[in-house]
């Protein structure tokens, strides 16, 4: 092998395991789901129905309800959680904080708790009659809140649960990225007389940029697929106030056995993400020029 061919082959060799595994275990499922999205099950057989499922998605009021709910949760929860996670990571990285290892583990605990326990604990916390949160509210003289029965508060409950669940996870990603910011940059900044805020603004944030891109993309995709929280807490209710796209897709596949329609919803979701990504790229490019 010539030197230049070897150099050209290098990245593909590093990629080879991923490409092989991807073709073996992802390509067929992704293709099969696409095929299913063009079929409807009639009389016990998959019948080709073209783009029917897609036009059904676009005219399905429940899909749009789910879309709106998902978008609202996305707009509120992701920014709040990521800002908190950045601050948390900076604190975890700072020598000013005592007992750092202990706190890191504490904030990581929620992500490890299994789905079933998660559901039980939160329904105990949010119960209207004898839940812990309402016990706190009534004991300081405030009225009870119908956490899961009121559309607004049901959405807030999902937002709180999500933040509780994933805050530590994101903080760990930031914490790992913080380690790659050379100490010299901070030293140089402090020599220049920058205060803590300036250091954060001009050294920490730019250094975190790759991790911020990562978490924004991941949280956006994760929230668009949001399923677990409404599944264990609200079942999508009350009256569809917390029905998410992920939840609706699950219902169509595993409750209604309408895999064709569920696959179409999945691909619409993918389309939305691709559009978002393109829009984001355009905006960034315009800002750069």
């Amino acid at each position: 092998m010539s030197y230049s061919l070897r150099t050209r082959a290098t990245p593909y060799l590093f990629l080879a395991p991923v490409l092989i595994l991807f073709l073996a275990f992802k390509a067929y499922p992704v293709g099969y789901a696409f095929y299913l999205s063009l079929t409807t099950r009639q009389g016990g057989a998959d019948t080709f129905t073209g783009l029917d499922n897609f036009s059904r998605v676009l005219s399905d009021p429940l899909f749009w309800t789910a879309f709106r709910n998902t978008a609202e949760i996305l707009a509120v929860q992701v920014p709040v959680m990521l800002v908190l996670a950045i601050l948390l990571a900076v604190a975890f990285d700072s020598k000013v904080l005592k007992a750092r290892a202990f706190f890191r583990v504490s904030y990581f605990v929620p992500i490890v708790m299994g789905l079933i326990a998660y559901g039980i604990v939160f329904s105990a916390l949010l119960n209207y009659q004898n839940g812990f949160l309402n016990w706190v509210l009534t004991s300081i003289g405030l009225p009870r809140i119908s956490w899961l029965g009121d559309p607004f508060w049901a959405r807030m409950s999902i937002v709180m649960a999500l933040t509780w669940h994933y805050l530590g996870y994101n903080a760990v990603i930031y914490l790992a990225q913080l380690q790659s910011i050379p100490q010299e940059l901070y030293e140089a900044a402090s020599v220049d007389g920058a205060n803590r805020w300036h250091q954060f603004r001009h050294v920490t944030l730019p250094g975190l940029r790759p991790a911020i891109v990562l978490t924004v993309v991941l949280s956006t995709i994760g929230t668009l697929q949001l399923f677990e929280e409404p599944y264990v807490l609200t079942n999508g209710g009350p009256d569809n106030a917390t029905l998410t796209i992920g939840m609706y897709l699950y219902e169509n596949a595993f409750k209604y056995f309408d895999f064709g329609y569920a696959s179409a919803i999945g691909y619409v979701l993918t389309g939305i993400v691709v559009l978002l990504a393109l829009a984001q790229m355009l905006i960034l490019r315009r800002r750069a020029s």
Binding site: L23, A24, Y28, G31
Partner: peptide
């Protein structure tokens, strides 16, 4: 078709 695409394992 998918299996042909997937090539290996499947």
């Amino acid at each position: 078709v998918a299996a042909a695409l997937a090539g290996a394992t499947v």
